[in-house]
Design a protein around this nucleic acid. Sequence first.
DNA 1: CCCTGTTTTGCAGGCGCATGCAACCCGAAC
DNA 2: GTTCGGGTTGCATGCGCCTGCAAAACAGGG
Lengths: 337, 337
Amino acid sequence: MEDSNGSGRGPTVQDVAARAGVSISAVSRAFTPGASISKKTKERVFDAANALGYTPNLVARSLATHRSGIVGLVMGDIRNPYYPEVVDALSRRLATHGFRTMLTTVWGDITVDDVAPSLVQSRVDGAIIASIADADRLGELLYKNGAAVMLFNRSAATSDKLSSVRCENVEGGRSVANYLLDKGFSRLAYIAGVEHIYTTQEREAGFVGRLMERGVQLFAREHGDYTYKGGFDAALRLATADTRPEAIFCANDITAIGAIDGVRAAGLRVPEDISIVGFDDIELASWPPYGLTTVRQDKAALIESCVDVLVEQIRSGQRTRHIQLVPVSIVERTSVR
Amino acid sequence: MEDSNGSGRGPTVQDVAARAGVSISAVSRAFTPGASISKKTKERVFDAANALGYTPNLVARSLATHRSGIVGLVMGDIRNPYYPEVVDALSRRLATHGFRTMLTTVWGDITVDDVAPSLVQSRVDGAIIASIADADRLGELLYKNGAAVMLFNRSAATSDKLSSVRCENVEGGRSVANYLLDKGFSRLAYIAGVEHIYTTQEREAGFVGRLMERGVQLFAREHGDYTYKGGFDAALRLATADTRPEAIFCANDITAIGAIDGVRAAGLRVPEDISIVGFDDIELASWPPYGLTTVRQDKAALIESCVDVLVEQIRSGQRTRHIQLVPVSIVERTSVR
DNA sequence: CCCTGTTTTGCAGGCGCATGCAACCCGAAC
DNA sequence: GTTCGGGTTGCATGCGCCTGCAAAACAGGG
């Protein structure tokens, strides 16, 4: 690997072309899979490139091709243990398709309006938007700017163009209602997540809807913030009320875990005094102190389908709406009597 | 916001310039903070830009300025609960400085060699490299390619150029040794993390080194993989051995949490039968079932300093080595007798 | 060897923006 | 009114690469 060309910056197609004794186009084509170029010149180009330590400049390529090769990953609070795995898997799968991941988190005092400009100006080819406030609005904006958009684990409420993959949230809520009712419980509570977020709404709708169908009313409702502490505090309130629920359905697992500890902090036992059900089946759910009975979703399928559809839309330029639902199932552990 | 110019793509400086009746340079300068332009024309440009829905194209800007405005964030296994918060905070702080975050994870069957090309070809301005194998090699490579590099919570072992921020890992290990010895324990074990990773080595070195200084030998050593399950299994082995340790120091918190459950799974109690100490002070450490006594590091200081130094190096172009250590302290909970 | 059809090649222009330079404008000082 | 200087402006060129087009090279077939 020789050194530079005096410009101070790295070698470019020009340098490689000169050294290989070919035109600039040849170099370009050598690095473009499927381009029209003979094996022989391709090798000469590669040799020269190696000798010079040349690496294609993706910025320049992006400008010329109008494809940045970047996908924006817009997440909510990734401290929720459900997400790190998702982020990891999404970015890896994107990478296998040749896309790079630009990560952004939207929660707390950072809103969609804070991050949108960066996404738009970066000219991302696509975006995966997970559980955040105003997901639809951001999605629409990017869509309008030509990006392919996938909503992850939520569906567009106010838009009829955005594609999405999600699990059967409503059905999950319904199963839990059935499950709990069949166990003979009648005082059932729900601990919600962040109110404006899609998943908690659907899960609640399914849960409460099914309860009604079977003639029972929701006994109590708390909000849990989608955090451990939120679940903890909510459960504490429920557990120390005059009459307490027999079972609590939590909008997600981390809330449920907090709820278990909250119930215990109130001096009660899980499941003897209060049963608890979560949603997601994160790893923690299976840890001995918790043994959380919860709704499992096929995370792998969700992720796979999400990036595959996105990539396909980017490649083809088509933006036909694509909505995918993956089934859920209850996994029983020890948190329900 | 009127619509396009027929080209199918979004409006460019040209369109804005035409509409505002100024030159292209004027438009460019209007969007360049600190550029030489009068207030009046700036306003005219902005008006035209708004009317057209113009947004600067960062790809083109990057090409022209030779600055991508992107920082690569290279993480290990972010499913370790220590990291999500770090990722979130780093990317947000980078954003406040005007940098976008390109996330990559390196662990399992993805190695540094798999991700390096993407980082280099993307022409990232800088990179933050956390706990991964071959961090030094990746760092050197990017450094050689002109990027500013910060090692996060590790120091360069084989390089004398790379900057880093980390906590006092050795000192932390030493404190734990002192703490446990002072409690009167003598059979002490260490559960290591992923062997080739820096933090576990330093923590062990400090721990074992101090033990030796005080005349006691490490009673047992296991490896825990830096995961819950790794800690669980390791502790199970230790707890079911013929003679078992009185206390176990784990390379990080998630391992320690696993170890607590592992000890319990062996039918023993924590801390009555075996005491356990972790390292990191993640949120889980404070949950009631665990109450993990652990070494706290000032994560916020680490993060702040990491991106500030990085940004400064990018801005100035200087690459003087900068090594920062942040102190640690033991927080006592209930996992030690 | 000529002709035709198929690669392969190079040229030139373009992607959207930044910036050095020289021309320009304007107000202030003389 | 003239001169001077600083702030503005536009021009032209370049960033590194892609790609449509036409010319060139090649491979067969007759």
